[in-house]
Design a protein around this nucleic acid. Structure first.
Length: 691
DNA sequence: TAAGGCGTATTATAGACAGCATGTC
DNA sequence: CTATAATACGCCTTA
């Protein structure tokens, strides 16, 4: 079936006027969508799923309705947004709504296609359920993430809300292959399209006892095992990704590769942003090798991904970060470990995850074929690996049944007005996958418990069997924080303001995952707890204290690498923690405006200090574009302590400071000048605008 | 006496979303 | 519950 037989010819603007034929699975899905049915498509990655979405988005646009594209990760949202910008040639207005790049909810009305994360979709719907009336089509990318314990329920809530409020909206679920796709389809009132089509064919094999087992045949590799496969692949002009199960293993394996191979690149030619990378990384890169995990800073990860895309790096050794995130394919993928520690035990990873990693094998347009190998070291693991490759699939299981999620969810149901009575809550839950897989009556105790908790703690009230949200509950729901977090922050506000103590409370909330605690942390952590009279020496408290200590270093301008070294953590870990603390400290500030107004100013500043990693005295300077924590401090140390002083500075004087070009200096002065003039016109300089 | 082998005890173990603000090529 | 690899440590053997 040709494209133009289903969409107006206009659509060809997207395809360079190429009126090609759809693949079978695309055609099937599109026809079902056009006839007004919900669809779940289950095909491997890189098989043209986006085109299906494109076509229905356009059809929806012609019907003057909006489309919502939901993905699990911010990086994927970014990627999808860039891709969907093409739709502007058809007159559609495309935008993105994720943490940093936000549009106010009301502005959604000015766009036709909105890309967002599950959490943002959830929060948007619960702030303004009526917004769903504007939508005609919702795409749920990677819908199998419903199985994810921490994040899955957010996506499930979104789908359930749509089924509950606006069943007319057409749903398109894009899924990895799972065993209970029929059950999912029943839940979503959808039809299924299943195919094993791949744009680049995949050849798989298992490395076991010095041999490669492929198609039932054994090829002897020698005692270098999978290293032979890597070497061959690279020598043949390919690139390679090796997945391992821990950061330490990742770094060690990269080192091992370096001792075996040299796919050298001339470092000087690369113009690396050297300050990002450490010596070890640079040494590896000079051999054409790199490692990649969440301990790296965002800048480091970006650099390595870029170098890999350009072909300067031949092999990346990585943790699963690289499997889930942005699309970074390689000809050969090697899964070195198929077990991983979780909840105290080492367990085989899920096949969904294995397939996701294998999905990175084969670059469309560059490789004729992709290779995926799994290495195992025991007979039992060999069985497991064989089962993966034979398509032994797991089901998608709802994880909406935890008490904390039920509390969170019932609060947002009541806060949004979606539920006024107990029956409304029940009716909502009947629309969840949880209800398909379990008897929802079994959860009535959990519901009662959650409602009791919310009432007791002042989030909601009840009168004549009608629930009403209290201001405390409303703000908690809008901040998208766990009700327990809100309670801990309220308790915090009862203490007199103290920087370390408040950081401790922020770190103690369930929305912050604190740093791990090690044996040698005892001494300084105990000192901290003693010093601030915290009489809680539980492990939970110790971890929070350690996190608070690290955050304190951060807001006192200790360089990130110094912190990383002295606490033996990665710069990426600090960035991740800072961003959580940023969110929670903002929530703390907002809560203070309700009943502790006298602290609000201080807490507003604390939030900025956490966001930027600065001391109090340069809060004003950080506002200038191009000036971060380091440059702001240099300006301050050179006597430019206020915006006004900068406004009257000379370009050369600032340009002479280390780290400032004349161009930057000029921009800074001009900006400072502008702000100062506004100030004298009576505008408020105290408003911080972020960057 | 120092170095090295070996068995046993100890330790550590992946990742990442959410709040708000303003008018973009 | 059903792990496992790296490291630390103690003990013994050997050059």
């Amino acid at each position: 079936m040709k494209l133009t037989s289903i969409v107006p010819a206009d659509f060809l603007k997207l395809t360079d006027n190429n009126d090609f034929s759809l693949y079978k699975h695309q055609e099937e899905a599109v026809q079902k969508l056009i006839s007004g049915k919900n669809v779940i498509v289950s095909v491997p990655t890189a098989s043209g799923k986006t085109l299906i979405a494109y076509i229905e988005i356009y059809k929806t646009f012609l019907k003057r309705k909006k489309s919502l594209y939901i993905v699990p990760l911010r990086s994927l949202a970014m990627e999808k947004y860039q891709e969907l910008l093409n739709l502007r040639s058809l007159g559609m207005r495309v935008t993105i709504s994720i943490g940093d790049y936000d549009i106010p909810p009301s502005f959604v009305r000015n766009y036709d296609v909105i890309v967002c994360t599950s959490e943002r979709a959830d929060s948007m719907i619960h702030r303004d359920p009526d917004i769903l009336n504007e939508f005609g089509f919702v795409i749920l990318d990677e819908i199998h993430t419903i199985s994810d314990e921490s994040r899955g329920p957010k996506l499930e809530t979104v789908i359930s809300s749509i089924l509950y409020l606006n069943p007319d909206i057409i749903l398109l679920g894009l899924s990895a292959t799972v065993s209970n796709i029929k059950e999912m389809a029943m839940w979503m009132n959808a039809e299924t399209v299943i195919s094993d089509f791949r744009a680049v064919p995949l050849e798989t094999g298992i490395v076991y006892r010095h041999s490669l087992i492929r198609d039932g045949k054994k090829e002897f590799l020698g005692n270098k095992d999978e290293l032979v496969l890597i070497e061959n692949s690279v020598n043949d002009g390919g690139q390679c990704i090796v997945f391992r199960n821990s950061r330490r293993n990742v770094e060690k394996y990269a080192e091992l590769l370096k001792n075996n191979f040299d796919f050298g690149t001339n470092i000087e030619d690369l113009e690396l942003p050297l300050e990002n990378l450490n010596d070890k990384m640079i040494d590896l890169i000079s051999h054409g090798i790199a490692y990649h995990h969440a301990g790296l800073s965002n800048e480091q990860r970006g650099t390595i991904e870029e170098l890999f895309k350009k072909g300067h790096i031949k092999i990346i050794v990585a943790t699963p970060t690289l499997a889930a995130g942005v699309n970074l394919p390689a000809r050969t993928v090697i899964i070195r470990d198929i077990t991983r520690y979780s909840d105290g035990y080492s367990k085989p990873i899920s096949n969904i995850e294995v397939q996701q990693m294998l999905g990175r094998a084969g670059r469309p347009k560059y490789d004729k074929i992709g290779y995926g190998y799994i290495t195992v070291s025991s007979e039992s693991m060999l069985k497991v690996a064989q089962n993966y490759l034979n398509g032994d699939l797991e089901p998608v299981i709802s994880k909406m049944d935890s008490n904390s999620l039920i509390r969170f969810n019932i609060l947002s149901l009541i806060s949004s007005g979606m539920a006024r009575k107990y029956d409304d809550i029940l009716n909502f839950y009947k629309k969840t996958l949880l209800a398909i897989q379990n008897d929802i009556e079994d959860y009535s105790l959990a519901f009662d418990g959650a409602i009791y908790f919310l009432k007791e703690n002042g989030f909601i009230s009840e009168e004549n069997d009608i629930y009403k949200v209290e201001p405390f509950g409303k703000i908690t729901s809008e901040l998208y924080i766990d009700p327990v977090t809100a309670l801990i922050l309220s308790e915090c506000l009862n203490h007199e303001y103290s920087e370390p103590l408040y950081l401790y409370y922020i770190s103690k909330t369930p929305d912050m995952i604190p740093f791990n605690f090690r044996e040698y942390d005892y001494e300084y952590v105990e000192n901290f707890l003693d010093k601030y009279n915290i009489n809680d020496f539980s492990e939970e408290s110790m971890r929070a204290a350690k996190t608070a200590i690290i955050l304190q270093e951060w807001i006192n301008e200790v360089p990130i690498n110094t912190i990383a070294e002295s606490f033996d953590i990665g710069p990426g870990d600090i960035q991740a923690k800072v961003s959580s603390a940023d969110w929670i400290s903002y929530s703390l500030y907002r809560l203070s405006t309700m009943n502790k107004k006298e602290y609000s100013g201080q807490l507003f500043h604390l939030n900025i200090r956490i966001k930027e990693g600065i001391k109090e005295d340069i809060i004003k300077l950080i506002e200038i574009p191009g000036v971060g924590r380091v440059r702001a401090r240099r300006l301050f140390d050179n006597g430019y302590t206020t915006i006004e002083k900068l406004a009257s500075a000379k370009m050369e004087d600032i340009g002479n400071i280390f780290g400032f070009s004349n161009k930057l200096a000029l921009e800074i002065i001009q900006y400072a000048d502008k702000i100062t003039k506004q100030y004298y016109k009576g505008n408020n300089l105290d408003s911080y605008s972020g960057r």
